[in-house]
Design a binder for these strands. Structure first.
Length: 483
RNA sequence: CGGGGUGUAGCUCAGAUGGUAGAGUGCACGGUUCGGGACCGUGAGGCCGGCGGUUCAAGUCCGCCCACCCCGACCA
């Protein structure tokens, strides 16, 4: 049932909890068109922080931002066969414009490989033009049949990096570099411990030779694909004719990569850390890291004292570059305002009233440990809070790591596999003979799809019997029901 | 596109056997409050998803649409 915060319990029904939380925390609202959401300022602030962090890493590595058109001629999309096959069911197509039917329909980009590579072929002529490393921050549209805020919407925001290289080795390095950024991003910024590995052939990106992915373990045991990095080989270079003269003046096709992370990540963030009291934001992504709440007072003198005291506190925190917000709303009760701060997941809350003022301390509590309240001296407050924020960041990651372990089991027979999927629903690590038929059958019988073979198991040679067929299998794969 | 469900105030919903619209919450204003979602008073807010039918009379009955939600197939 619902408590005073009007939130369902996370354990009762995670999907109801998630949807209410998004509304209560003011992250997003439904858009007028089916499957679209409006990302509200508080939610967008999360995305902006993510953008700044990732973008700075990309730029350090010499990746340049650019912008390519939203509309793509249909014929361009058709150029790479498996690419169009993969995307055609979910395309939004513009057939009319300016009051007339278009001679050639325009596709609203579901991803930008095709427009970008059409341009790449014009820009690349020599090995001196390589590597070409471009990224764009944009929106894309995929006509999804079943939508869910952030996790799966018809339009979403993302970044897509696209690079072209002289050699396969160099391209693969780029693929792994991007994957490493995403790993770092999830672990160090979102405080989420993900699985990282390579996708099976059937789960591979349409047009890619190899797809690597970040897989997030959600609290209900389902998998959320958190980011992907693809090695495209020369699959696009050939149809798009992206050739360069190498050092021996021989024409060669480039080796390409593409990689992306979307606003879906925010869905993973909300689900992973939130609890029955609302969001819990890791400090590094939180729009506000600290909220200062003042106890109301009608007395003008007291109010003035508190205002001055809050300014002193703000100065202390500003020295440490801590993002703060202050709530001195006299019209709302203390309890109400504290609950709102909790719903919004602000990592640290500082309460000040006359008691705190008189003895020069603050009452501090952490969003991840609400039951604990501590008195902290004003002197040295900035450094203290800085440490607390780091500690919260670390302990959230630890908690996520534990959840991941608790929601993963190694399984070696199919009865157990079925039982786990039916009764517990977890990630399953098991030998798979890597046949598509087996993969499909397992999915039909249990809803579990292959997620990845973990990076550390990619080169495994230990043999074991496939969990379904008993055939010789080389590697253990992770299986889970996908979001 | 199959199977199920719901459309009434910003939100959550109530409105038996047809008789002309309600609550909680939120919002606005005034006052008393304020150390964990306070209270009183006043007020604003509705083409009851749409079209058609039955009827003296439809939120309610009938038909047809439409939209959204949940469960499948597809998916960052």
């Amino acid at each position: 049932m619902q408590d005073k915060k009007m939130l369902p319990k996370k354990a009762d029904n995670i999907s109801d909890w998630y949807l209410s939380l998004i509304e209560r925390a003011d992250l997003a609202d439904y858009g007028p068109a089916k499957g679209t959401i409006v990302i509200k300022p508080y939610g967008y602030a999360l995305w902006e922080n993510a953008v700044h962090i990732l973008d700075s890493w990309f730029k350090e590595a010499g990746i340049q931002n650019a912008y390519f058109p939203l509309l793509i001629p249909y014929s361009l999309l058709e150029r790479e066969t498996s690419h169009i096959q993969g995307f055609s069911p979910e395309l939004a197509v513009v057939t009319h414009a300016g009051g007339k039917e278009l001679a050639e329909p325009l596709v609203v980009r579901p991803t930008s490989e095709t427009v970008m590579y059409e341009m790449f072929s014009k820009w690349i002529g020599s090995h001196r033009d390589l590597p070409l490393k471009i990224n764009q921050w944009c929106n894309v549209v995929r006509w999804e049949l079943r939508t869910f805020p952030f996790i799966r919407t018809c339009e979403f925001l993302w970044q897509e990096g696209h690079t072209a290289h002289e050699t396969e080795e160099e391209a693969m390095e780029m693929v792994l570099q991007a994957l490493d950024w995403y790993k770092k991003f999830y672990e160090e910024v979102f405080a989420i411990s993900p699985y990282i590995g390579e996708k099976s052939g059937s789960e591979r990106f349409a047009g890619a030779k190899r797809t690597f992915s970040i897989e997030l373990v959600m609290p209900d045991g389902k998998a959320l694909q958190g980011a992907t990095s693809h090695y495209l080989g020369q699959n696009f270079a050939k149809p798009f004719n992206i050739q360069f003269s190498d050092r021996q003046n021989k024409l060669q096709y480039v080796h390409q990569t593409s990689w992306g992370l979307s606003t879906r990540a925010l869905g993973g963030l909300i689900m992973t850390h939130g609890d029955d009291n609302g969001l819990i934001l890791p400090p590094r992504i939180a729009p506000y890291q600290v909220i200062i709440i003042t106890i109301n007072s009608k007395d003008q003198q007291t109010a003035a004292k508190l205002r001055a005291y809050v300014r002193t506190i703000e100065d202390q925190l500003a020295k440490e570059d801590i993002r703060i917000t202050t709530d001195s709303d006299n019209d709302k009760t203390l309890g109400y305002r504290m609950n709102e701060a909790e719903i919004k997941g602000i990592p640290v809350r500082i309460v000040v009233g006359l008691n705190e003022y008189d003895e020069k301390y603050v009452t501090l509590s952490r969003r991840d440990k609400l039951e604990e309240k501590q008195k902290v001296k004003l002197n040295g407050l900035g450094e203290y809070v800085r440490d607390v924020l780091e500690d919260i960041q670390g302990s959230l990651l630890e908690k996520s790591e534990k959840m991941k372990q608790n929601l993963t089991v190694d399984v070696n027979n199919f009865d157990e596999f079925k039982r786990v999927m039916q009764e517990e629903r977890k990630f399953i690590r098991a030998y798979w003979d890597e046949s598509e038929v087996t993969e499909k059958t397992i999915k039909e019988k249990t809803k579990a799809t292959t997620r990845v073979v973990e990076l550390e198991h990619i080169s495994d040679t230990d043999e074991g019997p496939c969990v379904y067929t008993g055939n010789k299998a080389r590697r253990k794969w992770l299986f889970a029901q996908a979001y």
